[in-house]
Design a protein around this nucleic acid. Structure first.
Length: 115
RNA sequence: UAAAGUGGUGAGGGUAGACGCUGUAUUUAUGCAGAGGAAAGUCCGGACUCCACAGGGCAGCAGGCCACCUAACAGGUGGGAGGAGUGAUCCUAUGGAAAGUGCCACAGAAAAUAAACCGCCCCAAAAUUUUUUGGGGUAAGGGUGAAAAGGUGGGGUAAGAGCCCACCGGUUAGACGGUAACGUCUGACGCAUGGUAAACCCCCUGCGGAGCAAGACCAAAUAGGAGGACGUUUGAGGCUUGCCCGGCCAAUGUCCUCGGGUAGGUUGCUAAAGCUUCAGGGAAACCUGAUGCGUAGAUGAAUGUCUACCUAAAACAGAAUCCGGCUUACUUGCCACUUUAUGGC
RNA sequence: GGCGGUGUACCCAAGUGGCUAAGGGAGAGGUCUGCAAAACCUCUAUUCAGCGGUUCGAAUCCGCUCGCCGCCU
């Protein structure tokens, strides 16, 4: 099992984001809202949205790195292949790696049960 | 010893392991490099790029003691003047109020061609024993105000007044010193000119406009036009820096050419008015020469996560075309010099 | 990243450097009414986003800072 996160694994285009927003479903959590949509790439992909309301540039970068790191280390836990877009809520700015990881595992459980 | 002031200078984590991200080199598996002192605010100034060439005038904007430095600046260095502080030292959007205009609320007699409310003095009349009325003189006193027409003292006078005198302040002429701002000295003038220019304005100086999301190249889908040359006509319309002049586009005919361009991609993209050390010049900012270094380049946007240890390692904070400044945010050291107070020798 | 605008009470807002900072809505209290509505009266700005400066005097003029909004792909 390799824990890498190359560029193809990220959602980068506006159209792909809109596809997930319009065609996908939602999972709400205290730290974020995750939009997800099954894909046919053979692997799951990650998209991030961190608005200016979350904090200054340093805080926003830290939030994005935390989520990327959690996704990188845990994406093999996902049973299917999904495009997942995280919309971050304000509470995440003070969260630790462990907080985000447990939140991500909640998402994994949710997907297993409901999909 | 205590309290202050000024200047300079340093750090902005490190080591090991595991897993990653961006760039790059080749041997395709590894190596190497990978955020700041403010990367920030976008407040000034440039480089660079494009524009129907950028020309003139008006308007507008910015700056404003003097000299120097700089690619340039609203930056820096030194000096002058004014102000604050016992002092070291610090602060100053520091030209012109005698070109003109405006404003100066309330209060006050009066807020700017000076002026008579109270008061003071003189004269006349009435009344009659201390008042009233009228005419005149007077800016010394009162009170108001942020500000009241040079200040203090003396002489003088009916009472007063630069009316006269001394000192201070001011204006002005000359000489001397200084590159200059300005200063010093001597003389003249009784003094004429209240404040406000971060009010309009005047004077001097500078400014074409936009900005790397600038711009260049490649190029699906879709649409069917696009460009060039020459001639003719009109000055209707549009464009330009806000306006005018000027200029350009334009309309139409003939001929020629085949490209234009959205999504997306490539490029611009990092070697630079660069940094280190030394020497020389200068009072300093800075300049000159030599030596060495070669220093992130992402594009939904890299530089992290976990573990252990060391340490005072906390705070403000994340490159986005690149530089020079300014301003603001913020953690912690070190050094030198100076001042004041108190005590001791 | 670049360029521009804006900030006055709970909301919408007016405001020549000079009075206690207009006005409307909302809210609170009162008058009126058997009770309400309407009408009328009264109240609500510690500091005009914050900090400095100019001025005798600043919401207003100037500088810095902060917040919000818009435009350029």
């Amino acid at each position: 099992m390799r824990y890498n996160l190359p560029r193809e694994v990220r959602i980068r285009k506006k159209k792909e984001f809109e596809a997930v927003y319009n065609g996908g479903r939602k999972f709400s959590h205290q730290l974020f809202i995750a939009f997800y949509l099954k894909n046919s790439y053979g692997y799951s992909r990650l998209g991030l949205t961190v608005s200016k309301k979350i904090g200054n540039a340093v805080v926003r970068n830290r939030v994005k790195r935390l989520i990327r790191e959690v996704f990188r280390l845990n994406r093999h836990e996902l049973k299917g292949n999904y495009d997942i877009v995280f919309n971050v809520k304000k509470g995440i700015s003070n969260s630790s790696f462990d907080d985000v990881e447990s939140a991500f595992m909640d998402l994994v459980d949710f997907l297993e049960k409901n999909d």
